[in-house]
Amino acid sequence: MPIYVAQLGMVLAVFVMLLLSAAVMVYSERKVAAFIQQRYGPYLVGPRGLLQPIADVIKLMFKEPLRPVAADTAIFFLAPILSATAAFAAFAVVPFGAESTFFGLLDEPIKLQVADVNVAVLVVFAITSISVYGIVLAGWSSNSKYSLLGALRSASQMISYELSYGMALAGALVLAGSLSLTDIVNAQQGAWFGFIPRWFVFVQPLGFAIFMIAGVAETNRAPFDFPEAEQELVAGYHTEYSSTAFMMFFLAEYINMVTAAAVAANLFLGGWHGPFLPEYLGWIWFLAKTAAILFFYIWMRWTLPRLRYDQLMQFGWKVLLPLAALNLIVTAAGVIYFGN
C-alpha cells in the first residue's frame, strides 16, 4: 500500500477517533457523575445506557436552530465552526504511538500521528489560542448580556492561564531539549534504577501539577467553569445557541479535553512508553494514561465547588504563574548543572 494512502487513512482514523472519544466522554461523564452522586445515570438507551450519546446527538440535530434577531449573522454562524475546527486541528500534531507498519501491512513504518512538526508543542499552543475566538465571537455576536459576560470571562481566563500552561510545559521542553512531541516522548524512554520509568512527571512534579490545573482552566472545566456558570450566566457564551451549532460547541469542549489530556500524557507521563508492553503495543499505554487523566478531570468536576471569579484570576496570576516561572528556572539550572 503506498505511503500517502496510509497517511490519508491516518487523517481519517484520527478524525473518527476524536468523534468517538467525544461520545465516550459524554457517556463516561454522566456515568461517573451518577456514581459520585449515587444515582444510576443513563441506563435506558441500549445496554447500560451505552447508546445515550447517539440519542443525544439525534435529539440535538432535530431541534430548531434559533438565532437572536439582533445577532451578527455571519459571526454567529462562524463561531461554532471555528470552535470545532480548532479542536480537531490541535490533535493533528499529537503522536499516539511508536512507528508502526501495522503488522507488515505497509512497506515502510508510518508514525501514529497526522503530522510530525518540529515545533509541535507550539502548534498545539497556537491552535488553542485560536480557539478562544470561537467562544469570544459566540458571546459577542449573540448580542445577549449573559453570552457577552461568559465570553469576556472565558477570554480573560484562557489568556491568563495560557501563560502558566506554557511555562509549565517549558520545563519538559528544557529537559527533552526539543519542541517536537515525538522527541519529547522518546526522551522519556527507559527507567531509572531499573524500575522507575523515566517519565518527566517524576522530575517535574510541580510542572505537572501546574500543567494539569492550567489545563482544567484552559478547557473551561469545573472548578474553573466560569464561562458557563449556570447559576450566574444561564449557559454563558452558548446561551443563545441550539441544535447543531450547540452540538459543535459541546463537541469542541470534549475534544479539547481529550487533546489536553493527550498532550499531558505525552509531555509528562512518557506517552506510549511504559513497562510490560512491547513497543508496537505502546498505544495501549498511551490510551490508558489519557483515560486516567480524563477520569481525573471528571472526578474533579463533580467533587470540587466552583471558585469565585476574582479568586480564579488571583490564583492564576499571583500563585500559578510565579510557581511556574520558579519551576522553569530551577529546571533550567538543573539541566545546566547536571549536564542533562
Binding site: V119, L122, V123, F125, A126, I127, S129, I130, V132, Y133, V136, W140, L148, A151, L152, A155, I159, E162
Partner: peptide, 20 residues
C-alpha cells in the same frame, strides 16, 4: 507559530476586547 500565538492569540484578543 509565534505569529499565530502572539499576534492572533494575544494582540488581536486585546483589540477584540476593546471593540467589545
Amino acid at each position: 507559530v509565534v505569529q499565530i500565538i502572539i499576534y492572533a492569540g494575544a494582540i488581536m484578543v486585546l483589540f477584540l476586547f476593546v471593540v467589545m
